[in-house]
Design a protein around this nucleic acid. Structure first.
Lengths: 191, 191
DNA sequence: ATAATTTCTTAATCTAGGTTAAGTGCTTTT
DNA sequence: AAAAGCACTTAACCTAGATTAAGAAATTAT
């Protein structure tokens, strides 16, 4: 069964007709590493579900410094939620880090989906609630933990990502410079 | 019309029977300032909508330092989303800062609500999505802005809160100590 | 009103993490 | 296989914000 249907079935039960309709409202595309799926200033008209590979979303502030908001690998959703729901130019880039296969839902199809399969409101409610909880936790962690503690938490939460994505992106996600991250890692290895 | 129904009508249209049912599934209570509505370690079984007054949610880490996650005044929702959806002991306190009137929905009634009025799935989906967007923005702000910039943003976003809640809570929300906040404020006034 | 408790301020000192810079080893491209 | 461009490390120095401590102002309780 497709990873997407599996993901959805964790929270709502679809009939096979509904599943078919759902799939007919999506498209699947593959992208090479380094592809930019979304640029700052663009209005995001799609939501992505990752079948394979790794993506990240990030922004860049005045000083040309990147900040990673989110990584997404197999089975994860990613997008610029702000731009997508407000239909306004966003601040995020979405980039492919590792060759990826991605399921795309456009905003129009997403609306059709809600109309034809009201159960999908429930699915995306639960998705948003779970995402909200993890963002709240990350926020509190950034306020109350040291960089070292945040790194340890990241490692236990996303063990596979550590080998796969460049360190500097992890440093950015955690909220430190690559130089400090390197120093910190060396310090941890000595223990 | 009640503030709650007004709030809901921004996103979904309810019939008057549905509105009646909704209200019958809620209760309204008033609380004195300093009342603790939820303690760390408790399983949160209610979601709150603020009719009047001010509440905050916060956690306390080992060092006995508080971190404010959220303020809620008139027309805002507040709760411990993690504990509420996972039905596990949470890490948050919810406290009344200013005498409050609060509409309470219990988890059981919330489920009934979804069953009887499926439209409410949509409402809470939109609520969660909006909340997610603002948490994402706050996260990125914490990673990329200085304390001073975060304070200015807070002022323009929540102008009424500044007069009403103790400074130390705003310092905590912004992510600095009360002492540094005081120094920073003095510095800003000189300009 | 007065005492008690909180909240806020100021100032000296300290530190986690940032900045700058130079060098080393990878990939990727040609 | 060279050349170019990234990604990572190390080290010296710097700074935003933390910590500690003590006093002043404002609330709250008696």
């Amino acid at each position: 069964m497709s990873l997407l249907l599996q993901n959805i079935s964790k929270h709502v039960d679809l009939t096979s007709q509904e599943e078919e309709l759902l799939l007919s409202l999506t498209s699947t595309e593959t992208f090479k590493a380094k592809t930019i799926l979304l640029n700052t200033g663009e209005i995001s008209k799609q939501t992505y579900f990752v079948n394979a590979g790794i993506l990240r979303s990030f922004n860049i502030n005045d000083n040309i410094i990147e900040h990673v908001l989110h990584f997404a690998c197999e089975g994860w959703w990613i997008g610029d939620m702000y731009s997508y729901i407000a239909e306004k130019p966003g601040n995020l880039f979405i980039e492919v880090l590792e060759d990826a296969e991605v399921i795309i839902i456009t905003k129009e199809n997403h609306q059709i989906l809600y109309k034809e399969i009201p159960k999908m409101e429930r699915f995306f409610r639960i998705l948003a609630e779970n995402s909200l909880v993890s963002h709240q936790e990350r926020l509190m962690d950034n306020l109350s933990l040291t960089a070292e503690e945040r790194f340890e938490k990241f490692c236990s939460k996303y063990p596979t990502l550590i080998q796969k994505v460049p360190q500097k992106h992890i440093a950015s996600y955690i909220g430190v410079t690559p130089e400090f991250f390197s120093k910190m890692k060396a310090r941890l290895l000595k223990k």
